[in-house]
């Protein structure tokens, strides 16, 4: 139907071809247009089942997938497993057996351990959608970021995005920077040396300060969420110092305004840490557009993937 080789799973960005990326991003557009209508549903996945399997707490991503599946008319089961009740690893094969027996057509999975969606994908006929695994990948986030960026910049090639914050522990940064790079968007990075590992992605230019960032004239600033509970005192001295060095506040917003630069964030936002309340009100913030596009992109991905449970 689309000239692409059928794909069963979406596990990361690296393995996607440019054609596949284009296909998903183009398909997300009509799905988004659907949201303007009174009836936001299409019958595409009627009779199909989607299992939302979250080993890590998540409200945004799991509800985004749920809404996307509902709008495709699929039946959705939510399955949240608190990590304390799971003996990591050892029960994984047993869990997969159970999932296989449930005969879901699509499994949306988030897991604290990198690589788990791939293991599940290998052992099940269902399509597996990685909703975030460890520090590894968050492919639908990257796709929604790309969709959002392309909406405001149809001439996106050669444009510049700077990612700010914790690259070391961020699956969002890995997937989004990889996808932007594939699309020909230049990617820069700003953050403390303890959270920006050297030489990992050759395509990313590293900046030492906001001044350097603004001199580069980025078209968008992409703030990452600070994992406060894990990092304060370990990777940087204090939240206050982080905010001062890398946070987004009114003075920096003014610089962005002068550059006509957009603001992005994967959410949820730590107000007062990576961004202040007033900066949240910046007129060129794309944060809620990202949320909306998340649903459209996830619908497009559900539409695209081909579970082996289907007989045709």
């Amino acid at each position: 139907m689309n000239g692409l080789k059928p794909r069963k799973d979406l596990l990361d960005i690296e393995s996607l071809s440019l054609d596949e990326i284009e296909y998903v991003l183009e398909n997300a557009v009509p799905f988004k247009q659907l949201f303007q209508r009174s009836v936001k549903k299409v019958p595409t996945l009627r009779g199909k089942t989607v299992l939302n399997l979250f080993y890590e707490p998540s409200t945004r991503t799991s509800s985004s997938f749920e809404v996307a599946a509902n709008r495709m008319s699929a039946d959705v089961t939510n399955f949240t497993i608190s990590s304390s009740s799971v003996v990591k690893g050892e029960s994984l094969l047993d869990t997969i057996e159970t999932l296989q027996a449930m005969r879901s057509d699509y499994i949306v999975i988030r897991h604290q351990a990198a690589g788990v969606p791939g293991i599940v994908a290998k052992h099940t006929r269902a399509s597996v959608l990685n909703a975030g695994d460890g520090y590894h990948a968050h492919p639908t986030q990257a796709l929604l970021d790309a969709m959002t960026f392309r909406e405001v910049y149809p001439d996106f090639r050669g444009r510049k995005v700077v990612i700010v914050g914790d690259l070391l522990h961020s699956r969002v940064a890995r997937s989004t920077s990889t996808l932007f790079n594939k699309l020909g968007i230049e990617v820069g990075v700003l953050g403390p040396g303890s959270l920006v590992p050297e030489g990992r992605h050759d395509f990313m230019q590293r900046f030492g300060s906001w001044d350097e960032v603004f001199d580069w004239k980025p078209d968008a600033v992409y703030l990452l969420r600070v994992q406060m509970e894990r990092q304060e005192g370990q990777f940087f001295p204090s939240i206050a110092e982080y905010h001062k060095m890398y946070g987004m506040h009114s003075e920096r917003v003014q610089r962005m305004r002068e550059l006509d630069c957009y603001l992005m964030h994967p959410g949820p936002v730590n107000r007062g840490v990576e961004i202040t309340d007033e900066a949240m009100g910046y007129e060129k913030s794309l944060i809620s557009t990202q949320v909306e596009n998340g649903i459209a992109v996830r619908m497009a991905v559900l539409h695209w993937l081909k579970p082996e449970t289907q007989l045709d």
Binding site: K88, G89, E90, H111, A114, G115, I119, G134
Partner: peptide, 10 residues
């Protein structure tokens, strides 16, 4: 079985 865990846990 032990090696079939995820990479981090194996």
């Amino acid at each position: 079985f032990e090696k079939s865990a995820d990479f981090g846990s194996a």
